[in-house]
Structures are given as C-alpha cells and as structure tokens.
Design a binder for these strands. Sequence first.
DNA 1: GCCTTTCCTTGACTTTGGTCAAGCGACCGG
DNA 2: CCGGTCGCTTGACCAAAGTCAAGGAAAGGC
Lengths: 241, 241
Amino acid sequence: MSSKLTAGDLQVINRVAVFRGLKPETVQHVIAPATATMLRPHELIMRQEEPATAFFIVIDGWLKISRNTQSGGETVIDMMKKGDSFAEAAAFSGGRYIATAEAVNIARVARIPADHLIRCIRESPDIALAMIASTSQRMHYLVQQVEQLKAQSGVQRVAEFLASLSAAEQGRCALALPYDKILIAGRLGLTPESLSRAFAKLRGVGVTINASKVDVDDIVELRRIAADDRNAVRGTLRPVR
Amino acid sequence: MSSKLTAGDLQVINRVAVFRGLKPETVQHVIAPATATMLRPHELIMRQEEPATAFFIVIDGWLKISRNTQSGGETVIDMMKKGDSFAEAAAFSGGRYIATAEAVNIARVARIPADHLIRCIRESPDIALAMIASTSQRMHYLVQQVEQLKAQSGVQRVAEFLASLSAAEQGRCALALPYDKILIAGRLGLTPESLSRAFAKLRGVGVTINASKVDVDDIVELRRIAADDRNAVRGTLRPVR
DNA sequence: GCCTTTCCTTGACTTTGGTCAAGCGACCGG
DNA sequence: CCGGTCGCTTGACCAAAGTCAAGGAAAGGC
C-alpha cells in the first residue's frame, strides 16, 4: 500500500511547484518522512471531515477533489494532476480536511506528515513562504472559479476550459480532453447533458470533438467567446447536430 | 488619509482572527509599521493587478472584494467586515492582488506592509502558521462558495445566507440584512431582480422581509430548504406577492 | 465470443434565472 | 419643496440549463 519514495518519485517531487525556490537540501529534509501510495480508480487518499494529518503531492495520475453536499450529492471542486500538491493549508492549521481526494485512474501520491512539516517550518521559515505561495495559487484558482460560475454561461466556461488546454498562441490546434466528460462537466458546474450541448454549439465555431480528441480551428475565437459578455455571444452560437 | 493606529484601532486588531494564538508582543511587533486609513464609500484600498505590497485588516465598516471580468463586468467575491483580514497570501507570495477592495460605507482599514511581515516571519515562524491558518479559513469559504454555486439553486443560496445571519438554534428569529440587496445579490451570484423573487418565494415559508429587517418564523425550516436537494424543494416554494 | 455496464449524445419538456421595462418610494442636493 | 438619482420590486418575456427518457457506442468481465 504505502512505501518509501522511489527514485522516480523523487524526480517528480523535486520539480513540484510547491518546492520551487527552496534549496535542494531543504526539500530533502521536508520529504524525509514522506511515503508514496499507489491508488486504484475510486480509491480515496483524503477524506472530508477527517483530521488533517498530512499534505499530498500527486506523482502520477489524476485525482478528483470533491465535496459532499448536505443533500447527499457530490460537487467537483478541482482536478489534480502530476506535480500538483494539495491540502497544504489544512495540514498546517491542524483542522480537518474540507474535501475528499479520489483517484480517477491509477495514481501515485506522496504523503508528507503535518507534524514533521510544522517542525521544519520552525527550523527554516522559507518553507512557510513556499507553502503560502502554493496556497495563494490555489486561492487564485478558486477565486477565478467563483468568478466564472457567476459571470460566464456554460458554453463560455467550456470554451475557456478548452482554450486552457492548449499553449498555442493563435490559429489551429489539436488537443486531448484530460479526463472523462462527466468529470469535465462536474468541474465546470454543468450536467453531462449540458456539456454535450455546449460542445454541439461550439461545433458551429470550428471546434470538433471526437471522443477525447478535440480540434480547434481558431483558438483566438475560442478565447474571444470565453472573454465576451455573457449576452454578446448569443447570436453566434447555434447548436450544430 | 493614512495615519498611525489609534488606541481604538489596536483594540480591534488585537482581537482579530488572523492573530489568534500569537503572543501579544509578537502582534505588537508585526503591526509596528502598520497604518490605518479612513475610506469614504466607493474608495478603493486594494486594486486588482497591482503589486501586492501589504495585507489589510478591517477595523470598521464593510468592504466589497470584487473582480473585474474580462468582459468589463464586476463579480463580487466576498464581503469583509470589522475584524476580517484579507490579502495575506498575496502579500507573501510577492505577486499581485487578484481582486479589488472597495469601501461600501465609511470604513477604516489597517495596512501592514508585506516586506516587514516577511522579515517578521523569518524571526518567528509562528506568524507564518497564523497566516496560513487564516488563509486556510479563506480557502474554506471559497470552496463552500464554489459548492453552493454548483449545487444549490438561487432560493437555496438565499435561504442559507439568511440562516447564516442568525446564531439562533431553532425557532423564530429577527435579523438585519448587513448590506444593500444589490450587494447581497452579487455575493450570491444573482441579479437584484432574482433576489427579490427569491425573497418572494421565501415569504411562503414564513420569512418576512421589510427593507433591511427580516423576520424568520422557523430558522430550522430555512436551513432545511438550504440543505435539501435542489429539486426536493420545488413544490413547497411558490412565490407570494 | 457475448453480456453488462458505463459513457455519451440527443430529443422533448420544465424550471430557473436573466433581460427589459415600468413604477414606486426613500434619500439627497439644490 | 422640488426634481433627481438610486434601490428595490414586479410583470412579461426569453434564454440557459436541468430533468427524464431513450438509445448507441465503447469498454470490461465472464
């Protein structure tokens, strides 16, 4: 189940954003008591409401970060991939996890105990700054998330999501959906049905979706749709069967 | 405009959540170079995209934390009141502010320079832990926000908002809306019109709104509406003129 | 191989919430 | 005191998105 880190694990961990700017020996020290776990699909590594005793780094695979709603449902909060870290802030504040982390596919996750981390911080405060920077990033994401949910329509969120998958400056580009459409729908606050229909509308502006392969005729157009006013887009987007 | 802290300012600052658990002398040290500013309605103390050179504590009044959308609109992210602190994480990470803070009414805000704060942390790491704890709280709020926007209907968000204004365990209670309905609408991701209609629906379950005074017949019922499944509520909520 | 399950799409329909327009009352400045 | 602006509400309408149901295609188990 859980084991010491392999050389490959260390490879990934040393490049992780949360440790950016720390001296290699500091990183070594922080991850000394870390363990790594292989997860099968649907296995959980972090459970909402449980005491926060560690934080995590994704070494490989995709994890779904979700919350159980009062009404028994589930809300996708974020998706984590190789190189992402999560629950840093919870681990420090000694509270409980506010969300659940579930493996989407076969995944490998490193676990760094919170008590050790706090001891490390007392020795070298730079670690604290690194963690705060990482937390700040996460917060930025959440703020953007709130903004998108409040200010953009479903199609616009889909357009922005697709555009974010490509680094292309402009013009035509091909990309692959990173995970199930059901999960994409959840991440964007839509039902799978609505996501399908959003894709159908985007077909009209040169976006071709075939299983998990996507072809975009003009990524600038896609970004324009996302950036436009909610109502400005209306005429241009008719569903194409 | 900006001035040294008054005795009254210190009163508030010493009780603030972000400094909870720190020794009084540590707090003294952190806020040594702090200044306080009086803000008139609509004045800004923090501007999105500007370099994050400080973090803030609200001494009095209400501030609106908002973001300018790409399409030229504005999204309310949060409302801050006396005793709240904000932009801690941004101040550390040396990036830029990700949102704008605007006074809603006459307000007073303390400003703690980031460079001094970082020096403090290197001296006593406990400050870092306090800041992380505070950031963690903020993140919890944002996660809940995302959850609410994705999982609850407008009326449900309104019900939850009203319920959160009262500490009452159960039964009848009276409460006051803390700020304009336009701002409440923004905070909940609704238009003012939709908020009005949501209020009209809640009238049917014993919620009376008169200007900024609200009377709730049964707060448990209100919480039930918020916690129910999006669809379960449907029959029970018809608008009452 | 086949059968089952899961993912995804589409259609028809309903509900929710935004838009536009009108109107009222409170507050403010002159 | 008047006329303005602003906050709030209501009505009529429309667009966006959820629900329910059906069906096809792909993947995985036996």
